[in-house]
Amino acid sequence: MKHKISFILNNEKITHEVESNKTLLSVLREDFDFTGAKEGCGMGECGACTVLVNGQPINSCMMLAVDIEGKEVLTIEGLSRGDVLDDLQISFIENGALQCGYCTPGMIMSAKALLNENPTPTEEDVKHAISGNLCRCTGYQKIVKAIMVVADKNNNQ
């Protein structure tokens, strides 16, 4: 069954036709070539597919695309403005918070949502907020640091 849906994708108004059984992740990747969100498990356990829907992080593998009607979706591709990177993206690079890069888009989106909601989180808040994003490379210490660096900057503003 096909559905015509309208939504905002990375700040752009979209009208699109989707089948009932397509997840948001598959539509982002296959129909829009936004491949920054990855499928790591397909079951909402790893967080590699994390995008923001109305500002909240969700696993796009667990959301049917038809449910995105009227909502605002932000993927990693929409986070930077042209070549001007978001503070978090810069901080991840400067603090060595990425290695293979496969979890990185989802990780940054979870961190972004946290800082939007709570600009000055504690280290414990950060760990809890990214516990749905698995990283096998870094051991997390530098990821937590990269997020805290941005948070501390917020704190001093």
Binding site: V53, I58, N59
Partner: peptide, 9 residues
């Protein structure tokens, strides 16, 4: 219960 992403849905 689950992760933050899960709890948002």
């Amino acid at each position: 219960a689950g992760s933050g992403q899960v709890r948002n849905l």
